[in-house]
Amino acid sequence: MRRGDTLFARLFGIFVAAIVLGHLIGFLWFRAYGPPPPPPPKHPNSLVILEESELRQPSPLGGPLVPLLLQLLLLLAAAWFGARLLTRPIRQLSAAAERLSENIDSAPLAESGPQEVRKAARSFNRMQARIREQIAQRSRILTAVSHDLRTPLARIKLRVEELEDGHLRTRMSQDLGEMTAMLDATLAYLREQRTSETRHLFDLQSLVESLVENAQDNGAAVSVVGACLPLHTQPLALRSCLNNLLDNALRYAGHARIELHDGEGQIEVRVIDNGPGIPVEQRDAVFEPFFRLESSRNRNSGGVGLGLSIAREAALRLGGELLLEESPGGGLTAVLRLPRR
């Protein structure tokens, strides 16, 4: 690569050119408008009379102020252009990283410009390609795991049904059910991490009302209050988040109330229950995968400790946040805040 084809060389050349041009303008300015040279000394016996045209009168523009102002303007223009040249690749890289966070299949950066910019763009594109390959590889692994584990579990379940001991058959069926539920939850969690979808205008209120109606059809005590306007979001991620929050409330409390609060810059969804709640010191830990409270480690809870983890993963991908608070009168309130953008 040519040494002159670098960002340093371009910036250095801009400032050198501005300084040289500023000095040249100052020199030409003083030459044209500067004070006249002193007249030649008169010989005592000379009667030479200088013509009026030969006597150059000093110009009001002959002072140093004007060329200094011109030099200052040139340096300011060079600094402005240099700053734009320096920050443009940073802005492009930042925009590409933002696109990548929303869509892993976004267009790669153009590998053009100075040497440093081309190298940064090339490294960024290689990183994006490696991430896509790793996600594709994990997708293939998930598909293989889902098939290879479900098949022997199904065979074992059929053989368990043939056991004559009813008590043993029941216990083994429960264990197989827990294994299947853990497999499904783990695959759902990994699938959530690799999901990528574009944003578009979506009716959040209709989604919440649909989830509430489905829960009510299954006999659950669920209600919704409030209203909100549509927002730009990722529908699948939003549905996954709200589904897991509602399931978590119904699993541990048996009921839930959803509140919608529409603000100027964000929308807040509150999933409220009056169940056993979660101690303050453990509200951060429950977002860790496979973490369960001691009180929920039994067969009847039905959870494997991934519901809140999936919900937070989805909330972060939406650019929002998920918090846990204590409900009025006891219980747990999951607060989902989504930016309106």
Rank of each mutant, 00 (worst) to 15 (best):
G303N: 14
P276R: 13
E288D: 11
Y252W: 11
A285P: 02
V271C: 10
R251A: 12
H255E: 13
I278T: 13
N300W: 14
G265S: 08
S295A: 15
G302V: 00
P289F: 07
D262L: 02
P289C: 10
I267W: 00
I272A: 05
D262Q: 05
E294Y: 03
E264N: 01
A285F: 02
R251L: 08
G254E: 08
N274T: 10
R297Q: 15
G254H: 10
R299E: 13
A285C: 05
N248H: 14
A285L: 13
R292L: 15
G254T: 09
A249Y: 07
E288S: 11
A285I: 11
E259D: 03
P279G: 07
F290N: 14
V286D: 06
G265L: 03
R251S: 12
L260V: 02
R257V: 00
A285M: 13
D284S: 15
L250T: 07
L260W: 00
V286E: 11
S301L: 13
G277C: 07
V286L: 07
Q282R: 15
E288M: 06
D262T: 01
G303F: 12
E288L: 11
R257L: 03
G263V: 00
S296W: 13
R270K: 12
G302Q: 09
Y252K: 04
A249R: 04
N248L: 06
D284N: 15
R257E: 07
I258E: 02
G275Y: 08
I267G: 00
G254V: 08
D284R: 15
R270P: 01
A253W: 08
R297A: 12
G254S: 08
V280C: 02
F290V: 03
G265K: 06
G303Q: 15
F291D: 07
E294H: 12
F291Q: 06
V271P: 06
G275T: 11
N300S: 14
P279A: 13
V286S: 07
I267T: 15
A253G: 03
G275W: 11
P289I: 04
I272P: 03
D262E: 03
V280P: 05
Q266C: 05
